[in-house]
Every structure is written in C-alpha cells, then in structure tokens.
C-alpha cells in the first residue's frame, strides 16, 4: 500500500521507497529524516484541506510531508 493511502493509526512498516521517482532534494530530506526500508511507520494526522499534508511517525520522530511525496513510499502492515 502507498503511504498516502494508509489509514490513520495503523502500525505499519516501510517496505520500499521509490528513490528514483523523487527529486534529489526530497530524497535527501527523506533519508535525513529517517525514512528507510524496514522502519516502523504510522500515519497520525491529516491536514485540514484535502487531508494534505500528512503527519507520520517514523521511528520515534513525527514528520510532516505532502501526499505527493508520501506516494513514493510503500508500506506493509507491521
């Protein structure tokens, strides 16, 4: 399932990230903020307009990102 489609508060795990589908900056930022295959992830909050951006817990950090970027992240139930 793509991260942008993941229902809220459903413990999951990153199975793949389409690094090549992201621009360099976004890919680097994602890495810096701890996105990686095998990391625990959970969607916590959604923005007020169009449910965008989303706030996810990655490891022990909470990260806000837009759905367009989240679409590059594939998750599986933990």
């Amino acid at each position: 399932m793509r991260l942008d489609e993941l229902p809220s508060r459903q413990a999951s795990c990153i199975s793949a990230i389409d690094w090549d589908g992201l621009d360099d900056k976004a890919a680097r930022r994602l890495r810096e903020l701890g996105f990686d295959e095998g990391v625990a992830i959970e969607t916590l909050h959604r923005g007020p307009i169009g449910l965008d951006p989303i706030a996810v817990r990655v490891g022990r950090m909470t990260i806000a990102l837009r759905k367009a970027v989240a679409a590059a992240v594939t998750v599986v139930p933990a």
Binding site: K25, A26, R29, T62, I63, A64, L65, R66, A68
Partner: peptide, 9 residues
C-alpha cells in the same frame, strides 16, 4: 516548488 517536509518536534 520545494514541497513541504519537516519534523514536528
């Protein structure tokens, strides 16, 4: 268009 990605401390 740099997008939006930040840590919520």
């Amino acid at each position: 268009g740099g997008g939006f990605m930040m840590e919520l401390p």
